[in-house]
Computed example of a mutant assay.
Amino acid sequence: MINLNGTLSNNEQTLSYNNRGFNYGDALFETIKVVHGKVLFLEDHYFRLMASMRILRMEIPMSFTMEFIKEEVLKTVEANQLSKRTARVKIVVFRETGGLYLPKNEAVSYVISATSLESDFYLLDESAYEVDLFKDYYVSPDLLSTLKTNNKAINVVGSVYASENDLANCLLLNTKKSVVEALNGNLFLVKGKEIKTPPISDGCLKGILRKQLIDIINILPDYTLVEESVSPFELQRVDEMFITNVITGIQPISKYRKKTYTTDVAKLLLQKLNVKVRLSS
C-alpha cells in the first residue's frame, strides 16, 4: 500500500508520466526508520525536509506540520501491516505537474511507501566491505549537494561502477578533489583519539545519522570530533573508516586498496547509538 496525498492505494502506477520528479528531478525524499510504530529521529527528518523544500523554493502547505507528517507515516506503516515490526519508510515530495524547467504550479504532492526491515536496532556488520574512490564524476561543494533530491545520477553510476568492480561501495570526491562521502552515506575516519568527518560545506549530505553521531562523539571524554576536508591521501593513514545512514546505522569499511581497518570505535559508537534510540522510544 502506498500513500498518495493521504489516500492509501494498492495501485503503484498512480503517478503521471509528466510528473516533475520523474521529468526534472523536481523532488525531495526522506528515508526514515520506524521501529514498532516509533519514528526514529522524527524532528531531525522533519526539519531537514522543511529546510530542503525552502531551498528548492517549494511551497510548503500549512498542513505540513510535524504531527501531520508523523500521522501520514504511521498510517502508511499500519496499512502495510508493519506497526509491530521495523519498517523503512520513504517520503517523496514533488512539485505538481505543469511547466518545463519553470514550474507552472507551485503546489506540492507527496507519496509515502513502507517496506519491512529485519532488525529493530542497529547491528554491526563486520563482514568484508571493500571500497575505492569513484573518480569519473565529482560532487559540487554547494548547498544543493547536501539535499536528498531525485538528482542522484552520480550515486547511480557510482553504484554500477562498484558492482562492476566487486566493491561494496565507493567514496565520492568533490570538484576540489576532497573526499566527501560514500555513495549511500556519510563518512567518518578515526586516527588515534580523533574522529574526523567532512564538513557540510564540502558538499556532503546533511545526514540524520551524521548529526546523531556528532552529538554522541562530542560528549565522549576520550575522543575529539573534527569537521575538516579529507584528502584521499589520508585514507590509508587512518585506523578506521565507517559509513553512516539512518537505515544501516554504522557500516565499517574493512579495506581500501591495500589498507585494512579496525572496528573498535564503530562498535563503541553503535552501542551508544542504540542506547540513544532506546531512550527515545
Rank of each mutant, 00 (worst) to 15 (best):
K255I: 05
F64W: 15
L220H: 11
N245H: 07
L235D: 01
F68L: 12
Q251S: 14
E59M: 10
K90N: 10
K70W: 00
L100Q: 00
L123V: 12
V160Q: 11
V277W: 04
L235S: 02
N23A: 13
E228H: 04
Y101P: 00
F22K: 06
F29T: 05
H36A: 01
S140L: 13
S163C: 11
L8K: 10
G25H: 03
S231G: 08
A168T: 07
K152L: 12
L28T: 01
D125Y: 07
K135R: 13
G207H: 04
K276M: 08
G98P: 13
R85C: 00
A87E: 01
E194R: 14
R54V: 06
G185M: 04
P252S: 06
S178F: 15
K255C: 07
M241R: 13
L124F: 08
F29L: 07
C204V: 03
Y101R: 08
L187R: 06
L220K: 12
K84I: 01
V92G: 02
D120E: 15
I208L: 01
L205M: 11
E118Y: 08
I208M: 00
I208N: 01
D166T: 06
K70P: 01
G99Q: 10
P141R: 07
Y223F: 15
V230P: 14
S109D: 13
V160G: 06
K259M: 12
E130V: 09
A128M: 01
K70C: 03
E118D: 03
P232F: 12
M66D: 08
V230K: 14
K276T: 08
K193W: 02
V39K: 04
Q212R: 14
S83Q: 15
A107C: 02
T197I: 05
T248F: 07
T224M: 11
I200K: 11
Q81K: 14
R257N: 08
K152Y: 08
T197N: 05
E30Y: 09
I200H: 06
N218K: 15
L225S: 01
C204G: 01
I91L: 13
K191L: 10
E164G: 02
F121T: 02
V157Q: 10
V275L: 14
N150S: 15
F68A: 08
L82T: 05
N18G: 09
E59N: 14
D44N: 08
Q236H: 09
C204A: 02
D202T: 12
G25E: 03
F121E: 03
D202C: 12
I112Y: 13
T115S: 10
Y24P: 03
D44Y: 10
Y110A: 09
D125M: 08
E164R: 12
R85W: 00
V160S: 12
K38A: 04
Y261I: 13
I32R: 06
T31N: 02
I243E: 08
P199E: 00
R85H: 06
I219M: 14
K70Q: 10
I219D: 14
T146D: 05
L167T: 11
N18K: 14
A87Y: 05
I69W: 06
G21E: 07
F242E: 05
K255E: 09
L4V: 15
I112C: 10
M50Q: 13
Y138R: 11
N3Y: 09
L187N: 06
K196T: 15
M62C: 01
T248C: 04
M66Y: 04
I154M: 11
N10I: 08
L209M: 15
K267M: 05
L40H: 00
T97G: 04
L213R: 11
K90M: 13
L40M: 02
L144C: 00
T65E: 07
